Every structure is written in C-alpha cells, then in structure tokens.
Simulated scan of single mutants.
Amino acid sequence: MERSWNVFVGTFEHSLDDKGRVVLPVTYRNHLNGQRGYISQWDLCLGVWTEEGFQDVAQRLTQKIREGQAPQEAMRAFSSNAHEVSADSQGRITIPQRLREFAGLDRDAVLIGAIDRIEIWNPERWTDQSSAADHSLVKAVTALGL
C-alpha cells in the first residue's frame, strides 16, 4: 500500500505564549486532520510529524542504525525527546520546555513547511539557515537538471 503524503509548505511567523504554546497555521492543522502528531528534535530546530510521518522517520532511522550508518544514540535522542501533540480548539500545540530549550525558542518562532513535516525554528537560526537553503536549492536544481 502506497503512503499518502501530507504536504506542508510555506513560512509563518508566530509567537509562543507564556505556556509554551504556538498556533499552527490553518493549512498545517488541515494536514494533521484533527489527529495527533509528534514533535521532537530535528537538525537545529523541532520537527512536527503526523503519526504516519513520525512512524516513517522512526523506521528509516532504525534501518540506518541496523546498517551501521547511524548511531543508536540518534534513536535514543529522537524517541526520548518526542512528545505527542494535538492542536487545541484555538489551533495551538504545546512545546515542552526541554524542546524549547533545544531549539532556542523564547518568544518568537518561525514555522516552515518541509514537505513531510513542520519545522519550528528560532528566528535567528532560521535566517542563517534559509540563506544556505536558498543556495543549496539553486545548486541542486542545476546539478539535477530540474
């Protein structure tokens, strides 16, 4: 059975409230279909996946560990820091304190769609990352002839 993709795209700037909650844009909430999702550490930011997307990443990471291409500690960090999330009636999800600290989130956040996941970035980190990402896209498009 082929997996149906939820496609997350776009960039949104939001503030965290005093309880560490951030509003998910309506388009992102629609892709979660009112279901639970999972949030965990990812790169220099936080990743939010649908349940199916989270299982897919966990399976791929498990395979890389079995093949000796990733350390077991990677799975420990990914799974032990993961939390189940679901949007409340106002579209907010709560980001646990430990994950806010990892991502350097204080008051403001940038939420970006990364096709199969939502990424939540510290605004300064995102500014640095987005410049590098723009350059990487140009190189990839040119090299792949897209």
Rank of each mutant, 00 (worst) to 15 (best):
N33H: 11
N33P: 00
G34T: 03
G34C: 07
G34Q: 02
G34I: 05
Q35Y: 07
Q35M: 13
R36P: 10
R36F: 10
R36C: 13
G37Q: 10
G37I: 10
G37M: 14
G37E: 12
Y38T: 06
Y38P: 04
Y38A: 09
Y38R: 15
Y38K: 12
I39L: 15
I39P: 12
I39V: 15
S40W: 11
S40F: 12
S40T: 15
Q41A: 06
Q41L: 11
Q41C: 10
Q41D: 00
Q41P: 00
W42E: 08
W42P: 01
W42H: 15
W42V: 00
W42N: 12
W42T: 00
D43S: 14
D43G: 13
D43T: 07
D43P: 01
L44C: 08
L44N: 11
C45Y: 00
C45S: 14
C45F: 01
L46N: 08
G47H: 03
V48K: 06
W49P: 04
W49C: 04
W49T: 00
W49A: 05
E51R: 09
E51Q: 12
E52P: 02
E52C: 01
E52M: 07
G53W: 05
G53N: 05
G53S: 08
G53C: 07
G53V: 00
F54Y: 15
F54K: 08
F54A: 11
F54S: 09
Q55H: 11
Q55T: 08
Q55E: 15
D56M: 13
D56S: 12
D56L: 14
D56G: 06
V57H: 04
V57M: 13
A58H: 04
A58N: 06
A58G: 07
Q59H: 02
Q59S: 12
Q59F: 01
R60Q: 12
R60F: 01
L61G: 00
L61M: 13
L61I: 11
L61K: 04
L61N: 02
T62Y: 05
T62K: 14
Q63D: 10
Q63N: 09
Q63K: 15
Q63M: 09
K64N: 10
K64L: 15
I65Q: 05
R66I: 06
R66C: 05
E67S: 04
E67T: 04
G68C: 06
G68W: 00
G68H: 02
G68F: 04
Q69R: 13
Q69E: 13
A70V: 08
A70P: 03
A70S: 13
A70D: 04
P71E: 07
P71R: 02
Q72Y: 03
Q72A: 14
E73A: 08
A74G: 03
A74D: 02
A74Q: 07
A74V: 10
A74T: 06
A74Y: 05
M75F: 04
M75R: 01
M75G: 05
R76I: 12
R76Q: 12
R76T: 09
R76V: 10
R76G: 09
A77G: 02
A77C: 07
A77K: 08
A77R: 09
F78D: 03
F78I: 04
F78C: 04
S79V: 11
S79M: 15
S79I: 09
S79H: 09
S79A: 15
S80T: 12
S80F: 11
S80V: 09
